[in-house]
Design a protein around this nucleic acid. Structure first.
Lengths: 189, 189
DNA sequence: GTCTATAACGCGATAGAC
DNA sequence: GTCTATCGCGTTATAGAC
């Protein structure tokens, strides 16, 4: 286990608080109390509350960008790519469910980095949609609106962070498989 | 068109601001500016910021409860019930996408009504799960984990408020049908 | 590296004039 | 019904002691 710097500890504890109450509702005094120090002392390790949010969100967004890059440029079939995307979301969401909450709910509170975040997200969605469109052309998936398909799958994957911590009995592999089944083949018998 | 009271107007404008920035990040001064009056004047029409949130969330939660009650007690098949649930979410989300944002993201900031809200939500999810379990028993839907199926469908439906306002070209009926197809039969060909 | 003290400001909410 | 002025408190952030 790597030793965690005090700065990393603050960011980790902040992410947990942000998940519970949202960025705006968490005060620096809340964070300091959770760390067992005074609010003023936080500023020996971090520059600002805003910087904490930047670190949490941008590192996660770049992790998704990197994962999507590898998946979209592979030679897999559309269905295989989709399964890998599902796996990507399950893995990141299980490793960092606190950060995922900020990514999903608090990105609008980014200041200097909001534009950059929105570009990463938009690129990700475009890659996703291209995979679906290629799958339709190749006859792998049904010819329905790619927008609606992407919306449906992606919102489910984006909400995994809420759900994964409650289901510790379910292994990640099992969850990935079940989700793949449901999202791709539906629930109809 | 019904005439809107000043109070209703404040709640409507507040819901819009809450959707953009979240409950905690919206100040009474923000709300007053959006209304074209001073913050103090708001209190002639509403009791508190918290009361605005209560009204937005509880009325919506009760609307879902009422809809689910009619669906779950009907004699429809499981698949028909699911389609009606999808329709319920599409209808409410299109009528009130601002309020849906608060319902999804700001319920944790409820004070006196949080327990009541959580009961309504929990009852809703139990009814949903029962419908799925009955569908499995009846052989209508696949024998996968009802939790995962419900999570997948419900998170998609709960995120509709983000998506519907961006797709004004798509009719609600068309959206309901496409979503039903995708959520029930999957995207696999 | 953490503390106390403090600055400068914005917050929700209220009182009272008009 | 809206205003100005204000209350008590929370906010981010900094300065300086230890």
């Amino acid at each position: 286990m790597k030793t965690e710097t005090r700065q990393q500890e603050i960011i980790r504890v902040a992410a947990k608080l942000f998940k519970e109450k949202g960025y705006s509702a968490v005060t620096m005094r809340d964070l300091a109390k959770a760390m067992g120090i005074k609010a003023a002392s936080l500023y020996n390790h971090i520059n600002s509350k805003q910087d904490i949010l930047n670190t949490i969100i941008i590192s996660l967004a770049e992790e998704f960008t990197e994962g999507m890059k590898q998946i979209s440029t592979s030679n897999d079939t559309c269905i295989e790519k989709l399964k890998k995307i599902i796996q990507l979301h399950v893995n990141i969401s299980s490793k960092n469910s606190y950060g995922m909450a900020s990514l999903n709910n608090d990105w609008m509170h980014l200041e200097t980095q909001r534009t950059y975040y929105k570009k990463l997200r938009s690129d990700y969605e475009n890659d996703f949609k291209t995979i679906l469109e290629d799958g339709i052309k190749a006859g792998e998936i049904v010819n329905a609106k790619p927008d609606v398909m992407m919306f449906s799958i992606l919102t489910t994957l984006r909400s995994l962070y809420i759900w994964i911590p409650k289901k510790e009995d379910l292994s990640l592999e099992e969850l990935t498989n079940t989700l793949s089944q449901i999202l791709i083949k539906g629930i109809n018998k």
